[in-house]
Design a protein around this nucleic acid. Structure first.
Length: 289
DNA sequence: CGCCAGGATTGAA
DNA sequence: TTCAATCATGGC
């Protein structure tokens, strides 16, 4: 029984593609609907013909936290028009109608992608699930549904031991996440200050954290701070750029990085997400083939 | 074993 | 600078 409900009027929004495209790791599918925790609030999202139904378990007067997170007010058509017109990009856009970028909490996004290093998405979800189950604060959920927890704050994680984090299957990532949490909790490192910096400066600032290289910094710039030109280059995107744009010769790393940073325009981050989701969902190898 | 996953760091060229 | 080697972990 929901306490608050909102019908979000929005077109061109594929909830499943967006919530399950490797940018957020804590959403649970329930049929066509999804449930998860944004900040300290449990929320259920259900696709409707005219938009999205949102239900919470706490009274909500101002839904900005949700519309900000979903970026539902963004003019997707205008963004798609800014993409370069080439066959790979057109194929990717055609394959993923309604795919969006979220606007996530910087700490949850940073910690999540620090944990993503050389892990598959299913494993990243498991690590984060363990971390939240064991160390996150409980949030109110509907009776009968599995309890939900918030993503643990930097302050909470800073008080944990490396061993407790390793127990969440973090492996060599544990000391990096712990060190970042401590620097942030102590006030030495300011996540909010990064929002106001120029793109290149913000990227360099994030990379001062051990365990954060260019790829993870780009993910946080794009998924948490809204630097839409940020273009994370992971193994999938490398494969995509290599196969789709440089099919005849192997492109050096530097060439791929330059191409990624210059070819896709001011909303390159969106283009990247379309290519990523396109590559990840097109060939589903059948085990009997 | 063999390979890979939304990599980062270090040290050599 | 830009590389290649090394680190490191769980799943299949």
């Amino acid at each position: 029984m929901a306490t608050s409900e909102l019908i979000l009027s929005v077109r061109d929004y594929d909830l499943s593609a967006t919530l399950d495209s490797g940018q957020a790791f804590r959403w649970h599918r329930q049929g066509a609907a999804w449930s998860g925790v944004i900040g300290q609030r449990w929320v259920r999202l259900e696709p409707l013909p005219e938009g999205i139904r949102a239900q919470t378990m706490v009274p909500v007067a101002d839904w900005t936290w949700l519309t900000d997170y979903l970026q539902s007010q963004v003019d997707l058509a205008a963004i798609l028009e800014s993409f370069p017109v080439d066959p790979p990009m057109q194929a990717a856009v055609a394959a993923c109608p309604g795919l969006r970028l979220l606007r996530q909490d910087p700490w949850e996004c940073l910690a999540s992608f620090m944990l993503s290093s050389t892990k598959q998405i299913v494993q990243i979800r498991q690590i984060i699930s363990l971390l939240c189950e064991r160390h996150g604060e409980a949030v109110t959920t509907p009776a009968g549904l599995a309890p939900a927890r918030a993503f643990p704050t930097p302050e909470r994680i800073a008080r944990l031991s490396e061993a407790e984090l390793r127990d969440c299957k973090m492996g060599f990532r544990a000391p990096n996440v712990l060190a970042a949490a401590r620097r942030i909790a102590s006030g030495e490192f300011h996540l909010e200050r990064i929002r106001a910096l120029p793109h290149a400066t913000a990227r360099a600032e994030l990379m001062r954290l051990r365990g954060v290289g260019g790829k993870i910094a780009d993910c946080v710039l794009l998924f948490a701070y809204g630097f839409n030109a940020a273009f994370p280059v992971d193994v999938w995107i490398k494969k995509a750029l290599q196969e789709l744009y440089f099919p005849r010769r192997r492109a050096p790393e530097k060439r791929l990085q330059y191409f990624a940073a210059t070819h896709f325009g001011e909303h390159g981050g969106y283009a990247q997400q379309y290519l990523f989701h396109y590559m990840r969902t097109r060939k589903r190898p059948n085990s009997r083939d």
